[in-house]
C-alpha cells in the first residue's frame, strides 16, 4: 500500500505538469478576480473567502482527469485490480495521493493568495482550517468521478458535470466557515458539518468508487 502511494507520488512529481498545474491555475484565478470585479479593497475582502474556496475547488477539479487516466492507458489499473490489494484500498490510496499532490499545496498556497484579495486577518486561520478539512472530501469525490468516466475518450468535460453537483455541500459549508471566520463570527456549526461530510465521504465513497472501477474494468 505504501509502495503504491510512493509510486503515485513519484509519478506525480516526475510528470512535472500535474503537480504545479493546479497551483498555477489557483494563482491565475485569484489574480483575475480583481480585474473582473474592480480593485476596491473592501469589496475584495468581502468576497475573498468565497473566491479562494471556489479557486481551490476548480483547481482540484482540473487535475481530476489525470487521476486514473494515466494508469488506465498503460494498463497498470488492470494490474492493480488483479493484485491482492482490494480495489477499495487502491482507490483510497489514489485519492490520498491526489490530495497530497493537489489538495495540500492548494491549502498551503491559499493564505498567500489571500493577501492579494485583502482577506481580513482573522480569516487566514479559518480559511486554512476549512480548506484543510474540505479538500480531502474533494479528492475522494473526485476519485469517484474519475472512476466513473475513466473508460471514456473525452471524459474531461463530463467529469466536471458529474463532480460539480457533488461538490455543492462541501463548498457551501467550507466557504461558510471561511466567510464567518473572516467576519469574526461563530464557525462551529458549519465546521462540524464540513468535517462530518469529509469523514462520511472518506468512509463510504471509496466503496462506490471501487464498484464503479470494477464495472469499467470488466
Amino acid at each position: 500500500m505504501i509502495a503504491l502511494l510512493l509510486r503515485d507520488l513519484k509519478l506525480a512529481f516526475r510528470a512535472g505538469g500535474g503537480f504545479g498545474l493546479g497551483l498555477a491555475f489557483f494563482l491565475i484565478v485569484t489574480v483575475l478576480v480583481p480585474f473582473s470585479v474592480g480593485p476596491q479593497s473592501s469589496l475584495l475582502s468581502t468576497i475573498a473567502p468565497g473566491i479562494l474556496w471556489l479557486g481551490a475547488l476548480l483547481a482540484c477539479l482540473l487535475s481530476l482527469d489525470r487521476l486514473l487516466a494515466l494508469d488506465w492507458e498503460d494498463g497498470s489499473l488492470d494490474l492493480l485490480a488483479t493484485a491482492p490489494l482490494p480495489l477499495e484500498s487502491v482507490v483510497t490510496i489514489k485519492a490520498l495521493a491526489h490530495w497530497l499532490t493537489t489538495g495540500l499545496p492548494l491549502v498551503l498556497a491559499a493564505p498567500f493568495l489571500g493577501v492579494l484579495l485583502n482577506l481580513p486577518v482573522p480569516g487566514y486561520f479559518w480559511l486554512v482550517i476549512s480548506l484543510l478539512i474540505g479538500t480531502p472530501a474533494m479528492s475522494v469525490i473526485g476519485t469517484f468521478g474519475a472512476a466513473l468516466t475513466v473508460g471514456l475518450k473525452r471524459g474531461g468535460l463530463l467529469l466536471s458535470l458529474l463532480v460539480l453537483p457533488l461538490y455543492v455541500p462541501t463548498l457551501i459549508f467550507g466557504a461558510e466557515v471561511a466567510r464567518l471566520g473572516a467576519t469574526g463570527m461563530e464557525t462551529q456549526t458549519p465546521l462540524l458539518m464540513l468535517a462530518g461530510i469529509t469523514a462520511a465521504t472518506i468512509a463510504l465513497l471509496p466503496f462506490a468508487s471501487a464498484a464503479v472501477l470494477r464495472i469499467n474494468l470488466r
Binding site: 466513473l148 455543492v168 455541500p169 457551501i172 459549508f173 461558510e176 461530510i197 464498484a211
Partner: peptide, 19 residues
C-alpha cells in the same frame, strides 16, 4: 451507481442550502 450516490448528495445539498 451515480443515481444512488447522487441521491445522497442531493439530500445533503438540500440541508446545506437550507443552512
Amino acid at each position: 451507481v451515480l443515481c444512488l450516490v447522487g441521491s445522497v448528495f442531493a439530500i445533503l445539498s438540500r440541508y446545506a442550502v437550507n443552512f
